[in-house]
Design a protein around this nucleic acid. Structure first.
Lengths: 204, 204
DNA sequence: GCAATGCGTTAACGCTCATTAACTCTGATC
DNA sequence: GATCAGAGTTAATGAGCGTTAACGCATTGC
């Protein structure tokens, strides 16, 4: 059906190649710091060739940011429903699941995490509003989970705390030399501990 | 001596006005997203008039980033020497002082904090190296303080933890509506608790 | 009084860069 | 085997923007 090999993973389409490379370049040098020629070169075609796949440079950024926000929120919601049903269902387990999911995201999709809070303002009004709305909903999922676990924590403090923990979990993509990190599972475990420590401290 | 009024605070010089407004604008819309005309307008002069005070737009960003890095490091070093001598001198008190100082910075100079990790790549090589070096030294001050308090914590984990706590403490300037924060002292206290909680969890 | 200097102004220049135009080539489809 | 669509190419266009030129005008120091 596909080009060659009954490969387990589908060959990445040109669009996907472009998005991945654009994400990397935008994260490295900023949206305005990257030219379309550069993005094209990164996938082996030349600048204007990109316009066969996207209506413009803005559209690439928009698709990246909307995409990441949607995936984050979907993952969060999924864990809430899963946690309520099949799994233990304790608030404790839900918070752990949210943290672990976010860490996976931060470690696997560094460029997107970076873009997510750095280039939001370059979007057209309508896209920016959409992303902001998704982000708010994602925060709300966390706030509810935190308050289920620590009912005494006021909502405003819970919200600030959730934002702060996002800053904490998203810190590794900002590192200059990510190769200086311990191996992935150790880093994930450490970040998880830090986040739980912060939440526990918030409630004390 | 000055223009008018024996004011307690010196009237801000034109240079300082420009730097403050440039910092705000750069933080809001990114270095490339702000034109010199806009910066000029923010201080009541017109675009090219800025060139009487700075050799170029890059120079403004450079001065901002080098300045903030120097002030952060100087503050950190000061607290180390103070803590060792006059104050209690316990590792515990030193870490508290570092955290409190950084929080003051994050809450009082939001735009600079934002620029600090967002626009570093727009600097000329020489300036960028200088800023990176100052940042590294600042991290080192924290790492030593943390390890003095928690000697069992391996250095690599301490370093990741310090970065993560910076992300946590720097999270408030990224908030969309900073007016939704609790009042300043309450926010500072909450952030302080979160940071201590994270460090404690790192060491467990 | 009168150069010199500091601090502005507006107009022009030139470069970068996203986007569009005008073609070409390959490979299905009927 | 002709046609058509998809996916590229290079060359041109045009806007935006940092920077420089050329000039005005106070204020200061001699």
């Amino acid at each position: 059906m596909s080009t060659h090999a009954a490969a387990r993973v589908a060959a990445p389409t040109r669009r996907e190649q472009i998005l991945r490379e654009a994400a990397r370049l935008f994260a490295e040098r900023g949206f305005h710091g990257v030219g379309v020629d550069e993005i094209g070169a990164a996938v082996g075609i030349s600048g204007p060739g990109l316009y066969r796949h996207f209506p413009g440079k803005d559209a690439m950024l928009a698709e990246l940011l909307v995409g990441i926000s949607e995936r984050l929120l979907a993952g969060g919601k999924l864990r809430v429903t899963e946690g309520g049903a099949s799994r233990g269902g304790s608030p404790d387990a839900l918070l752990d699941a949210l943290i672990a999911g976010h860490i996976d995201f931060a470690l696997d999709d560094r460029p997107l995490i970076t873009l997510h809070d750095r280039e939001l303002d370059r979007l057209r009004d309508t896209d920016r509003k959409r992303v902001r709305q998704l982000q708010r909903q994602y925060v709300e999922v966390w706030v509810e989970a935190v308050r289920a676990l620590y009912p005494s924590l006021p909502e405003s403090e819970a919200r600030v705390t959730v934002h702060a923990v996002f800053g904490l979990l998203n810190s590794t993509p900002h590192l200059t030399r990510p190769e200086a990190l311990p191996d992935r599972t150790a880093t994930a475990a450490l970040l998880h501990r830090l986040a739980r420590g912060a939440f526990a401290a918030a409630a004390s």
